[in-house]
């Protein structure tokens, strides 16, 4: 491999990749995660509060979204919402897809709250909405946060799938550079290392957080 590695190419592609990483990949991850975290919470609460038949349908819809590929969903939205730019579509696809996973995390967090908390809220006549907002969600969030973080990392590593709808994220830049300069080694290696450099420390952080937040 030593013979093929060209430091000049490496130096040439690195700034391009870093720029795409910051302006696209990170933005996609952050916005996507925020959407997923908000929607996931909505699903988790809805699954508990909606009447059984409706919540069953919702659970099924979430299953379908969770069990079908992200690129296919990206294509679908791309053709349905032709008027939207691809970044917006990417936000929606990442957000909705991962909201189904985060909903599961929230569910586990909500289930871990002791029954006495709900009962105390009833005994104080707190309305449902206030019980969720002031009592249940803050406690569930604490139990759920590391898991949400892990799904955000998973989303981060899935962003290159959005190549299919033409989002110019980091791996797209790598492929373009590789194609134009007839060398892929540097571009894809550096892209991989950037992913690793960002995701590994975050994953370690989440593991620590998990230990620290455990009651």
């Amino acid at each position: 491999m030593g013979i093929n590695w060209d430091w000049q190419d490496a130096a040439g592609v690195f700034p391009l990749l870093l720029e795409a990483f910051v302006t696209k990949t990170l933005v996609l991850t952050v916005v996507g995660s925020l959407i997923a975290a908000a929607l996931g919470l909505v699903w988790a609460v809805a699954l508990r509060e909606l009447p059984t038949p409706v919540s069953k349908v919702l659970a099924w819809v979430l299953d379908v979204i969770r069990m079908t590929p992200l690129p296919l969903q990206a294509f679908f939205l791309y053709y349905v919402f032709v008027q939207l730019d691809v970044m917006t579509i990417a936000f929606i696809v990442l957000g909705v897809h991962y909201s189904t996973y985060m909903a599961e995390s929230y569910r586990a967090g909500i289930e871990s709250i002791r029954k006495g908390q709900w009962e105390a809220a009833t005994a104080l006549s707190l309305p449902k909405s206030r019980t969720w907002r002031a009592v249940i969600v803050p406690q569930a969030l604490r139990a759920t946060l590391p898991s949400l973080g892990n799904w955000a990392i998973a989303m981060f590593k899935d962003t290159p799938f959005l190549i299919v709808i033409g989002v110019a994220e980091m791996v797209t830049s790598a492929r373009e550079y590789g194609g134009e300069n007839f060398t892929y080694v540097e571009a894809f290696t550096i892209a991989g290392l950037i992913f690793l450099a960002a995701s590994y420390p975050t994953a370690v952080l989440m593991r620590r957080l998990e230990k620290r937040l455990a009651y």
Binding site: K157, D158, P160, V171, R175, F188, A191, G192, F195
Partner: peptide
């Protein structure tokens, strides 16, 4: 785990 499936594929 850390280097992303798509990057590995392209590599």
């Amino acid at each position: 785990r850390g280097t992303s499936l798509v990057v590995q594929l392209f590599w």
